[in-house]
Amino acid sequence: MSHAAQVLDTARAAGARIATAESCTGGLIAAALTEVPGSSDVLDRGFVSYSNAAKQQMLGVTEDSLSRHGAVSETVAAEMAAGALARSAATLAIAVTGIAGPGGSEHKPEGRVCFGIADAAGVRTETVEFGAIGRGAVRARTVDHALRLLLAALGGAR
Rank of each mutant, 00 (worst) to 15 (best):
residue 146 A to N: 10
residue 24 C to K: 07
residue 9 D to S: 09
residue 117 I to V: 15
residue 146 A to Y: 04
residue 140 A to T: 10
residue 62 T to P: 01
residue 69 H to I: 13
residue 145 H to D: 08
residue 31 A to F: 00
residue 12 R to L: 13
residue 119 D to Y: 00
residue 8 L to Y: 00
residue 29 I to D: 02
residue 72 V to F: 04
residue 130 F to T: 01
residue 13 A to Q: 13
residue 97 T to W: 05
residue 57 Q to L: 10
residue 49 S to I: 01
residue 148 R to L: 09
residue 54 A to V: 07
residue 48 V to W: 03
residue 46 G to R: 00
residue 85 L to K: 10
residue 68 R to H: 14
residue 74 E to M: 12
residue 75 T to R: 14
residue 144 D to C: 14
residue 15 G to R: 06
residue 5 A to N: 04
residue 119 D to L: 03
residue 131 G to V: 11
residue 40 S to F: 08
residue 51 S to F: 11
residue 81 A to S: 11
residue 109 P to S: 14
residue 116 G to L: 02
residue 137 A to P: 13
residue 157 A to S: 15
residue 83 G to P: 12
residue 27 G to Q: 10
residue 37 P to L: 07
residue 146 A to D: 09
residue 93 A to I: 02
residue 94 I to F: 01
residue 23 S to F: 08
residue 111 G to F: 00
residue 14 A to G: 11
residue 59 L to P: 05
residue 42 V to T: 10
residue 144 D to K: 13
residue 104 G to E: 07
residue 25 T to R: 01
residue 29 I to H: 00
residue 3 H to F: 14
residue 3 H to R: 15
residue 68 R to W: 12
residue 45 R to A: 10
residue 135 R to Q: 14
residue 144 D to G: 14
residue 7 V to A: 08
residue 117 I to M: 12
residue 137 A to Q: 13
residue 60 G to W: 05
residue 71 A to E: 01
residue 59 L to D: 03
residue 127 T to L: 07
residue 102 P to W: 08
residue 136 G to S: 13
residue 86 A to L: 15
residue 36 V to E: 05
residue 77 A to G: 07
residue 83 G to E: 05
residue 102 P to V: 12
residue 19 A to E: 01
residue 3 H to L: 14
residue 126 E to V: 06
residue 88 S to W: 06
residue 70 G to S: 09
residue 136 G to T: 15
